[in-house]
Each structure stands twice: as C-alpha cells, then as structure tokens.
Amino acid sequence: MMSKITQSVLVAALAASVAWVVPTSSVSAQDIQITGPLAGAPAVRRLRQHRVGRVQLVVPTVGFTLQDEFSRSMIVGLGAHVHFTDFLGVGIWGGAANFANAFQINTDLTSQVMVNGQTTDRNRLSMPSNEGFDDQVGRLLGLASAHLIFAPLRGKLALFQGAFVDTDFWILAGFAAAFVEERADVGDGSVCAGTTSSAACLATQSGADARQVRFAPAPMIGVGLNLYFNEFLGLSLQWRAFPFDMNSAGTDESGRDANGNPGAGFPDGVIDSQDQRFYFNHMMNIGLIINLPPEMEVSD
C-alpha cells in the first residue's frame, strides 16, 4: 500500500524529473495524472467533529488517587473545555477531595502505624502517639487546573462487533493548584522532649491548631479517552498527574549535619517545609461528557 506521503514524494520526484528533462515552456501539470476516485482524498471524509466550536462539559468527574502512602482521596469534580479546532482546546478542571475532607480514607499503612507504631524519645516529635497518627498525615483538599488539551487521535471503536462509538484520545498539559492539609509547623520541638508525650506535644498532633492548609502549585499532565455515545453525551476516562512536595506523614524527616548536608542531622527537632518529600501524585478519573451545543459539525 502506498501511503499518501510516499505518493506525494513520488509525485514530487517525478515532477522534478520532468521539470529537469523537459523544457520549461512545455511543462504541464497533466504530465502526471493520478486517476481514481481517491486521488488526493483526505484520510477521512465527513468526520464527525465532536470538539470544534463546542463547549465540552465533564460533569461530574469521579476519581481516585493512586499509590497513596498514608491517605487516599476520592475526587469529585467538574471540567469544561473549549476547542478552537477539533484537536486543540483549552480547559479548566477542579475537584474536591473527599468532599473537602468531610471524610478520610486511610491506607493500610496508616492503620498499621496506628496499631503497631511505637513512640520513643527518638521519634516523639514525629509521632507523639501512634493512636493519633491519622490526625497528622497530610491530606489533599482539592485540585484546580487550567490546561491545554490536544486530541491528535480520533476514530471509532466497535464493542463486541455490535455497538459503535466515536472515540478520541487526548493529552493535556497545564498548571494545577493543589490545596493540601498537613500537620502544622512545629517550630520548637522541645515540647516533645522527655520520656512521655506531654499535652503540648500531643496538641501538635491532634490539637485544634495542629493542621494547616497550604497551596501547592504543580504542573499537571494527563491523557484520556473520550467515548461519544451520541452528539450530546459521552464518557471520559482520564489519568492525571500533578507532582509536588508534601509532608504526607507529618513527621520530622529533615536534618542537616555540621556541613549543611541534608539528612545526616536527623532529627532536626522542627517540623516545617524542609520535611516535605517529592510525590508523583496521580489519579484516575471517569466523567460524563455533555457537549454544547448539542449538534456537532461534520467535515466535508
């Protein structure tokens, strides 16, 4: 099968050869004529363009974060995309994690720490008590993003050789704002000195001021597959990643030695941003697509 590229190159090469051999005055475009009804035809005709000139609402999106260490997040959100062409658009998306932390989902690791974790003089600031460990773990509150969306592939799929749906594959890149609730900074770790956890020490874990909300900017990338059941409704399957630093355990991890090198001076007796570690946060989403206006364009 000769692809269009090969065909074009061949035609160009032949045309160049003819132009070189034949005097200019007698050159004619009819020297090479590709016959047949498909000559010069685009790969697809009457393409159903679900995106161009439309607003694509994705309401709601429901998703779960993946590879969580201490807390999981179920994120319910909504998104909107506007497309300049059928393959390029801009969009916004936002979601609340666990309905803005109305409930918490602990990982098995957190549950194990709450049961089997041990507080000693060495780690008292990191974990004033094992039973209250879930009060100090970092949790996602919500996410918002603005992004470019690029849909290079569109087509259709057959399901069990019976149902056919239009489909496109897209990627996105943009910026996200993550809102994280973490253990509040503890500037003076001496409150947790001693052989038992004092009330002041326990208050840094479970007290009224033991939590703080932080805004964390992050890049966001994602890929997805949209399935269109008709011109109006569809289903979106998405994977999104939004890496940023956080202190997911609420523990004292940082420390510097006499030379200022990190880690060697652990623990440094302070809980602050230095204790954050890099996390490649990512999630899976599924969403209902509503395209507006309901009618789509069909290409020539």
């Binding site: 685009p42 790969a43 393409l47 592939l153 569109r154 087509g155 057959a158 399901l159 489909t167």
Partner: peptide, 19 residues
C-alpha cells in the same frame, strides 16, 4: 478482543487499534 477500532491522526494517518 471485545473492542476494536481505528483512529485518524490529523485526518492524514490511520491507526488500527484494539482493546
């Protein structure tokens, strides 16, 4: 293979795919 289809890229190239 219950699902199969094809994708067009920029209305120029066709990719067959299946799930």
């Amino acid at each position: 293979v219950p699902i199969y289809g094809k994708f067009s890229m920029f209305n120029e190239f066709i990719f067959q795919w299946d799930s």
